[in-house]
Amino acid sequence: MAKDVEGFREYTAGRLEKWRRTAYLLSGDWFLADDMVSTALTGLYRHWDRVSRMENPDAYVRTSMLRAMLNERRRPWRRERVLDVLPERASTEPGADGVADRLAVVALLAELPARRRAVLVLRYFCDLSVEQTAAELGCSTGTVKSQTSRALEALRARLQGAELVAEEA
């Protein structure tokens, strides 16, 4: 049976930008985001016949990107680098033009452990429910709730007491 290439093209074209943005929030780097989306696209294309019949092919793409991100953290000996001084970090001071705000939120996300970052992105950027987030991360709803709570707590602490509005339940 011939692959439904036009169906793939139509489905993907309308979602590519959203996937890139999700990947950017997960990785903090537009180049890596493109790599993550490329990897996910390859899997999606090769399994399109099966995935297109799924209720939510988006979940397949997000799971591919999450795996790519979570696998990166599994090299503790690569994360620890011997440096004499800590590298400069992005400022978290708000700016008049909003650019600093945008950089700040990405910098704050990058400081979170990978799974907590993923939970925040899935819930507050992809608008997934606790149950959907748990399904995509392969963990329990209780884990999602506790990770969300800790991630928000960490963000609030880094924002030094500023209000951070986010529905936790």
Partner: peptide, 13 residues
């Protein structure tokens, strides 16, 4: 601007 979903959207603008 302290609404997290809004901040995340703005971060990718």
């Amino acid at each position: 601007m302290n609404d997290l979903p809004e901040q995340l959207r703005a971060a990718t603008d």
